[in-house]
């Protein structure tokens, strides 16, 4: 595996929203469902019905994507609509997990951080 250009310690998010547009499962635990439902003012059942589907391995739930694979909670301003309650999988990228192909899509991983946080 090629080393990443940017180490997680030097990573700073450019808020491009690309990571929210990749197709793929975002697994959500019951606690995360409860939190996100609370954030949106929904019951857990309503959140499950509206925003989740069964994972491919049939062992859990994942967030429903838009037709192009983008997250439904990504706002037009590239913000997360459930920021305070966003699932752990989203929170932990790219510090806890990432794959080499993400480098091409994530500017923060491609270019080492200058040391200054973006505005």
């Amino acid at each position: 595996m090629q080393p990443m250009s940017a180490e997680p310690t030097t990573f700073a998010c450019r808020q491009c929203g690309n990571c929210c547009r990749w197709p793929g499962e975002v697994r959500v635990s019951p606690e995360e469902i409860r939190a996100a439902a609370g954030r949106l003012g929904l019951t857990e059942e309503a959140f499950i019905a509206r925003h989740t589907q069964v994972t491919r391995d049939r062992q859990g739930l994942t967030l429903v994507e838009d037709a192009g694979g983008a997250c439904r909670f990504l706002t037009p301003e590239n913000r997360c609509a459930i920021q305070s309650a966003k699932p752990r999988q989203c929170r932990e990228f790219p510090h806890q997990w990432r794959a080499p192909e993400h480098e091409h899509l994530c500017a923060g991983l491609r270019e080492p951080h200058s040391g200054k946080e973006p505005a």
Partner: peptide, 11 residues
């Protein structure tokens, strides 16, 4: 019995 459950969306 617990409610609506989405198994997938296919295109």
């Amino acid at each position: 019995p617990e409610g609506f459950l989405r198994l997938g969306i296919v295109g």
